[in-house]
Every structure is written in C-alpha cells, then in structure tokens.
Amino acid sequence: MKISCIIVEDIQIAADFLRKFCEKSDLVEVKGHFMNVADALEFLDREKVDLLFLDVEMPGANGFDLLDRLTYSPKIILTTSKTEYAFNAFQYHVDDYLKKPFTYKRFMEAIEKLRQQQAAEISPTTTFASVPQPDSDFLFIKAEDKLIKLNKDDILFLESMRDYVKFVTAGKSYITYSTLKNMEEKLIGQTFLKVHRSYIVNINKIDDIRGNTIYVLGNQIPIGKGHKEDLATRLNIL
C-alpha cells in the first residue's frame, strides 16, 4: 500500500521536485500541496495522511506551528534549507530531515527508513508487548528484558522518544520499543488523553495547568495548540 502524504511548501519548484520524486518512487501518493500552514491544517482536519513533507519557513505560521496544532501523529519529514532547525526537529520527534535541494537518492533513503519504521510498528514481534484488554486496569510492557505489569492508574504520562515510548510513574520510568501512535490506540479513553504530539497524560494525575503547561507530580508537559480544545472539554472545570 502506498504511503499517503501532503506537501506543505511555499516554493513551487521545491514542491514540484517533491511531487516528481513521489511519483517516480511509486511508493508515495501525494494527496495535496499547500503553500501555507492554514490551508494544510484545513485539509488535515478533514483527511488523515500517513506522512507530511513539511517546510519550516513559510509566510505566516511556520512548520512547527503546524505540528503544534496537529491532533494526530503522521510521520513527518522536514524539508528546509536551514540546518539550524535540527534541534527543534529533534524536540518535535520528526522522522527525517531533508535539506533542500535534495536528490532522489536522498529522498528514497528517507522513504525507505519510514517504510522500515512502519513495518516494525505493525510487526507482532516488535509491537507494544502488552495484552491490552480495553477495560482491564493494567497492561504489560516489554522493558528491561522482561514483561512488566503496570497498573494504568499508576501511569502519570507517556512520552514519545522517536521509536520508543517512556512510561512515567511516580517512582520510576520505563522505556519500551513502540510508538505513541500505538499507545494512543490502546490507552486513549476515559483517563488518558493526548495533549501534545509527544505526550499522553493520565487526566487523574494532573496537579494543575498553567498556561500551556500541565504539571504532574513535578513534571511539566506541554499542551499542543491543536489539543487545547480537547483537553478543555475533558476537564471538569467549574
């Protein structure tokens, strides 16, 4: 199955190259090209895609603003001619970084890497090692070379670490090989809520919220712009 994508890019030549590379690969289907963040977000509100090719510097809002507003987690490949964004890219857990102009060879390296990640995510040997019963109070995660039982109620929050997810409890953190997307499907419900591209939080554990930050037992969790509304409706605000 082809990877569906959109291109968010304000330079037409760059977008044309990308589209051409996608077509040539026969692995990636371009669902649309948008010259700015607002138009891309409008599309993404209606339709989900597997991958975003995202320019950083665009008129108005930039690529990181789009990531802040996203309410789900497609794969992200940043396309920019500035290397200074590497740190931000790391913070936002982008999947790859293509420095413009890039060749077809470099493009294919990025796509192959994504395909390998996708294969790992759906492979039964590498997926989240729990036996998730939607209504059960616990789950098992594969960490520290064993299966560890975690009571859902003990989990404060989950943090994405690229191909790994960190489960944070009051006393200890556990890192397991999986993705936040997998966790979303297994945990989101009554008590767990995705509040940022990289964080899922246990609502029962929130101490307070100040501005765009959630405080959970001394930990600070950012609230993504696109998740604010969801969070507000889920909180019991008097």
Partner: peptide
C-alpha cells in the same frame, strides 16, 4: 532575512551552491 532565505533555496535548484 526570510525573503533572502527563499531566494537561497531557489538558487540551490539551479546549482548555485556558492551563492546559497
């Protein structure tokens, strides 16, 4: 700065790496 940045990208696609 942003406008020169855009031109810089454009120059790259026609091989002006030094101008970039």
């Amino acid at each position: 700065g942003t406008s020169v940045h855009t031109c810089k990208t454009l120059f790259g696609y026609v091989g002006f790496t030094d101008l970039q």
